[in-house]
Every structure is written in structure tokens, then in C-alpha cells.
Design a protein around this nucleic acid. Structure first.
Lengths: 239, 239
DNA sequence: ACAAAAGTGTTGTACGTACACCCATGA
DNA sequence: TCATGGGTGTACGTACAACACTTTTGT
């Protein structure tokens, strides 16, 4: 299967020349341990464009919205086609509709998503590569701007919600959870204070298991499924 | 000029039958002093539909997106056509795109806006009426859901930004500002504590003028224009 | 034994809340 | 002079940051 950001769809191709077309793209974040030194980075998958406009440049995974497909469904499909997996968190980001953002008139409904590092397939997919979110090349269209906004939302939301759990496996240590926060926020957090904050939030369930490592074993926690990752208000009931 | 929520546009009418059309709607909030007793309510303008679907029902003001018009511009145009004025605050709310939200396939980019009560024209406009946001009739399409979400965003945002100033004239007393917060949040706020919070926030500039009323005159304040009403991150730079 | 991470305790500051109190004005 | 809203002072509780300290493991 070829993967390109210019995804032809019958209904779109048939549209009139001056029509407005609706695309759906997704910014998919995960965390990746950097090879050499210690450290973790926010990474996202990009797709190399195989046709004009912007042939050869990297772009966000996406495609045209199908006539019989909701926006959420289109975002999930996009994600499945790119990563082959369902996201641990998926939320609409923004609708981008500047007149000159593409040669033809395209309104892009952009989503952003989180997936757990352990669920990212190892084998590389054709034309897809994962990039460090803080060191992106020049992207197609206004996608640099879009990723910048998605990163801002991620950093903001990590401060007042529990979305960080969307980047961890089912069981994790507090140190691992803290590393997620530190990576996203880009600053050091006090282990003692972090422990108390997150313990008193009621979103964690301690288990009987421990992670044995180089030193004193750390207790493993589970995420409390009763608590939503983020409060999206009336829209929570949807999809 | 007639105002309907079914707004014909050449480019849309020419689109193929199975094409996806893009509409822009706006939830416009302002405050209105209730007639009889004391009290203020959040109100918004609705447009009576003059054609199917949902003929006769009330709907959000909106229209089709023009091919040579950005989303923001379309929202501003919508607002101007409804109220004849520029909003004191305008922000994209959400893109609604359920397949069955309209008989034909329509993706609606919804904005929400604030305007100052003193800038709302007195004379009523044909087919437009202002409704108490907390007591709406059944609206066309999914517009009840949309207003509910907009209200949630308004109440949320008033807690961590200064958008309340978007509902006041240039000069205002602290009691007036407090009434805005109380109306939106739906609860009483301690005058003494409210004063300190808002005074220490650095967003207010005291003037030499006082509002003389029934009792001790209250100092008038101005809004500090250097401070943005709300932090929208990287998107702030956009128009 | 020692290093290093897990986990606990203590203290100070900032901030929101509750509420008592004084001030200035119109009637 | 009195009622009322404008405006100040103060005490209390919670939340968080800083950091000293104890515990438990691998080597």
C-alpha cells in the first residue's frame, strides 16, 4: 500500500473546479527514547508527498473526507492507515481554512492524537518517517504551523488533564509518568512533589507489582479507567 | 435584506449532488439585563429558517463558505450580517461534521463571539431574535448541541482568561465586571475577594472617573489593551 | 559499604475563601 | 441618620515548591 498525503478519492476528484474540498489530517504524538545519551523526545510521523503540490516535502498524514464518513471517523481512518493502530487519545485540534494554504481551495480539519510508544510498530512503512517534533524540516502547506499549534495544545493540556497517561502502557512507575511530563513540558519536576500531586489526584491505582531495575524497585501503577483523560465537556458523549 | 440560515451561494448550488459543502456558523453571546426583577442573562441571536430543512425552526446565524474567503472572514461576515458590528472577541469553536446532521452533507465550522451589550443595535432585525441561552427552544440541525458546547467553553474560558472584558464597555466599575462573571458562572462571588484578584492581575487601569449611582460612587476602570483577552498560543498571530 | 533511585516529612509562600469592619454617598 | 454598596483588613485552609531525610535495592 502506498501512503501519500495527496490521497485521491472519487468524490473529491469529481467535484467542480471551484469547489471547496474538505481534508482531514492528524498530528500523532508519541514519545521515543533518544539513542545515545539519556533523554526522551516527542516524535510524530510524517508522510513524504509523492505528487504536487509540494512533491518531495514531508506532510501530516491525512486524506479527503468521504461523503459518508464523519470527521472523527476520517481521523481514525487516517491514523489507522499511518500507524495501523487506534490512538489512546484523539481530539479535534482546529480547522485550517486560509484561502492560500493550498493551490486549490482546501479546508483541513486537523486532529491530534496520542499513541503509546509500545504500540508503535517497529517495522518502517514506506514513505513514512518519525521526526522529533522540536526539530522539523520545512513541511508542505501550513503544516509547520499546525504542528506548532498541536504542540502548544499538548503542553497546555498536560497541565490541567491526565492525557499524559495516553503515552504510557497499562502499568508504569511514577518515574516513568514523571518522565512523560518532563519531556512534554521541557523542564525538571521534583520527584517528591510529583508523587504527591499525582497520588492525591485519584487517577492512579497502585498495583502489587514492582519494576525491578538498577536499584530499589518501584511500585507499578495502573490508570483509573473511571476518570476521563481530559474533560471535553458536552462533546465527551460524542463518538 | 432577508436573513435565513439557509444561505444560497452560487458556488454551493453548482456543487455536485454528493459533494461536501462547508458552512460557517457563529454563536454570538452578549449579556442582557432581565426586565422585571434584578438579574442578567446570557443571550444570543438566532435566525428563523425560511426554507427546508427545518423550516420555521430557529438556527444559528451562518452561511456557506465562499471560495475566496477564509474561515475567519466568513465568521466575521456572518456576524456583521446578523448584528451589523464587529465582535469584541471571536474564536473558532469546533468543526461539526456528523454525516446525518443535515439531509445533505454539510461540515460546519462554528465560531463563537462576544459583543458588548451597548453595541447591540436596539431595532430588531427581520427573522432575528435574541434568546436566553439557558432556555432555548428546539433548534434546527444539531444547533442545541453546538450552543451547549459554546456555553461550556465560555464558562470554562472565563475562569482562566480575561474574556469577560469583551462583554463590557470601555469604562466599567468592578461591580459591573463582577456581575459579568456571576452571570456567566451562575454563582455569587465575594466582592472583596473579587476586587483583589482582578486588581492584582494587572489587566485593569483605574481612571479618575467615578460612576455615581444610588450610593457611594464606584471608581471606573479601563481594560489594559496590552493584555490579550485570551492566550490562543501560536494562533494569536493570525488575524 | 556505597551509589542511586524510591519514598516520606517539614517548612515557607502564594493564593483563594470567609467574613468582620470602615467609608462615602443619596435619600 | 440610616441603608446600601464601595472598599480594606484579617484569619484560615489548601496547594505547591524547595529540600532535608529515610528506605531499599544492585553491585
Amino acid at each position: 500500500m502506498t501512503r501519500t498525503a495527496a490521497l485521491p478519492t472519487p468524490s473529491a476528484a469529481e467535484a467542480a473546479a471551484d469547489a471547496i474540498r474538505v481534508a482531514v489530517s492528524t498530528v500523532i504524538f508519541t514519545l521515543r527514547r533518544l539513542p545515545g545519551s539519556a533523554g526522551t523526545a516527542v516524535v510524530l510521523p510524517l508522510v513524504r508527498r509523492t505528487r504536487d503540490p509540494h512533491q518531495g516535502l514531508w506532510a501530516l498524514p491525512g486524506g479527503w473526507l468521504d461523503v459518508d464518513e464523519s470527521l472523527d471517523a476520517a481521523a481514525s481512518r487516517t491514523l489507522a492507515e499511518t500507524t495501523g493502530l487506534a490512538p489512546s487519545y484523539l481530539e479535534q485540534l482546529y480547522a485550517f481554512g486560509a484561502v492560500d494554504r493550498s493551490p486549490s481551495r482546501v479546508v483541513s480539519i486537523v486532529y491530534w492524537a496520542l499513541i503509546r510508544p509500545d504500540e508503535v510498530p517497529d517495522g518502517s512503512v514506506e514513505n513514512v518517517e518519525w521526526f522529533d517534533a522540536s526539530a522539523l524540516p520545512q513541511l508542505a502547506f501550513d503544516h509547520n504551523e499546525i504542528v506548532g499549534y498541536a504542540l502548544w495544545r499538548l503542553r497546555n493540556k498536560v497541565g490541567y488533564s491526565r492525557i499524559a497517561h495516553g503515552l504510557l502502557a497499562d502499568e508504569f512507575t511514577l518515574a516513568e509518568l514523571r518522565e512523560v511530563y518532563e519531556t512534554i513540558l521541557g523542564r525538571h519536576l521534583d520527584p517528591a512533589n510529583f508523587r504527591r500531586q499525582v497520588e492525591h489526584s485519584g487517577t492512579l491505582i497502585p498495583t502489587d507489582r514492582f519494576r525491578t531495575g538498577s536499584h530499589r524497585p518501584a511500585r507499578l501503577y495502573r490508570y483509573n479507567q473511571d476518570v476521563e483523560l481530559a474533560d471535553r465537556g458536552p462533546l465527551d458523549a460524542r463518538p
